[in-house]
Amino acid sequence: MDMLARSWLCIPALKEGLKEKIARSAADITLLDLEDSIPGHKKQLARARLLTLEKTMWSRCELAIRVNALSKPEGIRDLVFLMDNNIVPKYLVIPKVESSGELRILGELMSVTGACTKIFGVVETLKGLRRIDAIINGSVDICGLILGGADLSSEIAFRLSRSALMQVKCEMALAALSAGVKVIDTPCFTLMSESQLRDEIESARELGYSGKIAIHPSQVNLINELFSPTQIELEKAKAIIASLSSSELPTAVTSIDGEMIGPPFEILAKKLLATQQLIVSKDRKKAL
């Protein structure tokens, strides 16, 4: 999937200076929130705040909107508002997904409007967690899953331990990656601990996560850095591709620095180089 999704900076749609915050954001995707960060009596005001953004921003900026749950009236109001005002974000984030039907109906609505919006579902309930495979396989429109650790913890009625959360992360990653969709990690809610953020990023990346939600701009740079290929990884990837593409290679396997490599290593190498190319393209675009 040709998209860069390392960092998602979540900003309440009611924030003052929304346009300036989007412009200053170093995140790959700026996520404008209509859900948890907006009190019930201010939902309509938050929607109206989206109208203050220039129309061109929706096409030239990597913007996502998190609507309210589609099982609730506010979620339906969000969709109607977006369609009535021709607001077409590049990404639409659907919270508390528990069935493929929600996403299938949403996909049909999007196709009617002609929108090319990518859909991400947030898994943050026990019911949604148990139905991950059905959610993914029953919806041809989903591009990725996002883990909602806070809501999941509150439903279980205690703070998830590290080991329990890792089990959930692993289950989500296996389901998403086996279906070829991206998986994004839950936020780190401890704002003043870089070590905790680093630990969460590294463990998520090891499981195959593509990125992480940021709830503060100070988290974005580290998320971008650790979800990017290192120079050592890039050099090894190039060496792997060069070695396996050699016409003098007698078999489909060879060795580099004492490590046996074959076709699966080449697939990973190409993915790393493709990610790096997306990063370079983003940096060039931002410099213009």
Rank of each mutant, 00 (worst) to 15 (best):
L34I: 06
L34G: 15
E35V: 04
E35A: 10
D36S: 09
I38A: 07
I38Q: 06
P39T: 15
G40M: 03
G40N: 10
G40S: 05
H41W: 06
L45H: 14
A46Q: 05
L50V: 14
L50Q: 10
T52H: 12
T56Y: 03
M57Q: 06
W58V: 03
R60C: 12
R60A: 09
R60S: 14
C61E: 15
A64R: 04
I65D: 08
N68Y: 00
A69F: 10
L70T: 00
K72L: 11
K72A: 13
G75F: 04
V80S: 11
V80K: 11
F81K: 14
L82A: 04
N85H: 11
N85I: 02
N85E: 04
I87N: 03
I87S: 02
P89E: 08
Y91G: 10
I94D: 00
I94C: 01
I94M: 02
I94N: 01
I94F: 02
P95E: 09
P95R: 06
K96N: 09
K96D: 06
V97C: 07
V97Y: 02
E98H: 12
G101I: 13
G101E: 11
L103V: 01
R104T: 15
I105V: 12
I105D: 13
L109Q: 08
L109S: 06
M110I: 15
T113F: 13
G114N: 00
A115C: 11
A115T: 07
K118Y: 04
K118W: 05
F120E: 06
V122G: 00
V123M: 14
V123P: 01
E124D: 07
E124P: 01
T125C: 01
T125Y: 01
T125M: 01
L126Q: 08
R130V: 04
R131G: 09
A134I: 14
I135C: 08
I135G: 08
I136W: 02
G138P: 07
S139C: 13
V140D: 13
D141G: 00
D141Y: 04
D141A: 01
C143K: 11
C143V: 01
C143Q: 15
L145I: 10
L145Y: 08
I146Q: 04
I146F: 05
L147V: 14
G148V: 14
D151S: 03
L152V: 01
L152T: 02
S154A: 09
S154K: 13
E155F: 02
R162E: 13
S163N: 11
L165C: 01
Q167Y: 12
